[in-house]
């Protein structure tokens, strides 16, 4: 900018150069201010957008349909199978995925004993349905089954439905559960009918507890 220095160092040209330098410094400061303000605006906008998205998302997921099923744990991540029978006793948590063959064979072999001990009040039993196999198996059967079981907790014996799902596990992992099985056949096997069946099926269709799983 100031490549051309005044030829002679006269007092007048010195003053001019000084004033010019001052004006330039002021212009640079104004520019820096502008850059900082713009950068801050960008950051604020970014933070607002991301924060807003997360907020909307978190409101949508649990609030819109995210009721927790009956007898859910305080943290909302499991269902107490024997509420009120073993207060203060140790807690047994059973983690499972309805599509997991190992979980199925455990349930079919030892499930009733685990459940029996809970019903006697030896310990608190909490079922913790998980849906990670949906990702691996590229279907949504774990989610639908978990939602169905939670729905059944509204109208009947949650543990019985849970057992029924595992008893009907497909022979080959990944084949999944049909809607017909979860929605119609299993409640029928367990003797659910009338209003309770309707309530269950409405819950199933609405996917009420999908965010719970």
């Amino acid at each position: 900018m100031s490549s051309k220095k005044p030829a002679g160092p006269t007092p007048a040209s010195n003053r001019r150069a000084q004033m010019r330098a001052q004006a330039e410094a002021e212009a640079r400061r104004a520019r820096t201010r502008k850059i900082v303000i713009t950068a801050l605006s960008v950051v604020v906008v970014a933070a607002l957008v991301i924060g807003g998205l997360v907020w909307v998302q978190s409101r949508n997921t649990p609030a819109a349909n995210g009721a927790v099923p009956p007898n859910a744990t305080a943290a909302g991540n499991g269902i107490v199978v024997n509420p009120g029978t073993a207060d203060g006793k140790p807690v047994v948590e059973l983690f499972f995925d309805y599509q997991c063959p190992g979980c199925g064979s455990l349930e079919r072999s030892a499930g009733q004993y685990i459940l029996g001990g809970a019903q006697q009040g030896d310990y608190q039993l909490i079922y913790r349905p998980m849906i990670f196999l949906d990702t691996n198996l590229r279907n949504d059967s774990s989610l639908r089954a978990a939602n169905a079981a939670a729905c059944y907790a509204e109208v009947g014996d949650y543990a019985a439905y849970h057992q029924a799902v595992f008893n009907n596990q497909p022979a080959q992992e990944g084949q999944g559960y049909t809607d017909d099985l979860l929605r119609n056949q299993l409640p029928a096997q367990l003797g659910t009918s009338g209003d309770k069946l309707t309530q269950f099926q409405q819950c199933y269709d609405a996917g009420t507890y999908k965010s719970f799983a």
């Binding site: 001019r16 150069a17 004033m19 640079r28 502008k34 850059i35």
Partner: peptide, 13 residues
């Protein structure tokens, strides 16, 4: 972010 041009008339070279 352009530098505001310093008005040259003000400081006649």
């Amino acid at each position: 972010f352009a530098l505001a041009p310093v008005p040259t008339d003000e400081f006649p070279d």
